[in-house]
Computed example of a mutant assay.
Amino acid sequence: MRELYPDLWQTTSEHPMTAFPHSTSNAYLLLQETGNILFYCTGREAIGQSNEQADFDHIADLGGITQVLLGHWHEASPSLKEIKGRFGAEIVVHARDAAPVEKYSGVAPDIIFWDRHMLHAGVEAIPTPGHTVGSACYLYRSPHDRTYLFTGDTIWPARGSWTSATFEDDAKQSAHRSSLDALATLRPDVVLSAISPDNTCAEISPDEWVSATDIAKARLA
């Protein structure tokens, strides 16, 4: 793991997509006095790997995990059961992705949501259907003068640009474009996706972010 900012850590990079072996996946641990929050899921490559266990030990040293906020059901794996068992963490996901999360992880979500609203400790949940019907992003205004936007697989950096992909048949591209339009109105300083062909974390200016969402929309066509 590595520290990105005083309240944010990035887990060891993984490569869980066999069809895209060069794609990198990371989870992010937000440190909070009221309980740490893990965005996405770590340990998806293989339960029991040394890197995964080292990350879990490091997370324990940092105070453990109170909640796991999933961006969509593709992040679900048996490691969620291990995270819940070791740390007692609550699993949080949009209601429309709750069933497949339970199917692929063996753990039922503890908290589901439908609409945009504030979750635990100042984190805002923003439904962004498109990649999956229950995709969601999360916004957090850090006291360390940065606004973090966790985008899951709704939009991610890719080789100096940005991209996006609609996955499910009933997650229409029009819904995905609307989700990107909604994200374009935000003003993140740091965008943190769940997967990327290079770095899942990107610092960005407001103008660059609007351009990024426009580019991602164009690539949906």
Rank of each mutant, 00 (worst) to 15 (best):
R2G: 09
T12N: 03
T12D: 07
A19I: 03
F20E: 11
S23D: 14
S23M: 15
T24F: 09
A27Q: 07
A27C: 10
A27T: 04
L30G: 01
T34R: 13
L38P: 03
F39D: 05
C41Q: 12
R44C: 06
R44F: 00
Q49M: 12
Q49I: 10
Q49F: 09
E52M: 07
Q53A: 04
A54W: 05
D55S: 03
I59D: 10
G63N: 11
Q67D: 10
V68Y: 12
L70W: 05
A76V: 06
S77C: 09
S79L: 11
E82Q: 14
G85P: 00
A89L: 09
V92N: 04
V92H: 08
V93Q: 09
A95I: 01
R96T: 06
A99M: 09
A99E: 15
A99K: 00
P100M: 03
Y104F: 14
V107L: 14
A108P: 00
F113V: 07
F113K: 04
H120R: 12
A125P: 06
I126S: 08
T128P: 03
P129S: 13
A136C: 14
A136R: 04
R146H: 09
T147W: 07
Y148M: 07
L149F: 07
T151R: 07
G160Y: 08
G160P: 07
T163I: 08
A165H: 12
F167N: 01
F167E: 07
D169G: 03
K172F: 14
S174E: 15
S174L: 12
A175I: 06
R177K: 14
L180V: 09
L180K: 01
T185W: 11
T185A: 15
T185Y: 13
R187P: 02
L192Y: 05
A194I: 02
I195S: 11
S196R: 01
P197V: 02
T200D: 10
E203T: 02
I204R: 03
W209I: 02
W209F: 13
D214P: 00
I215L: 13
I215G: 00
A218Q: 13
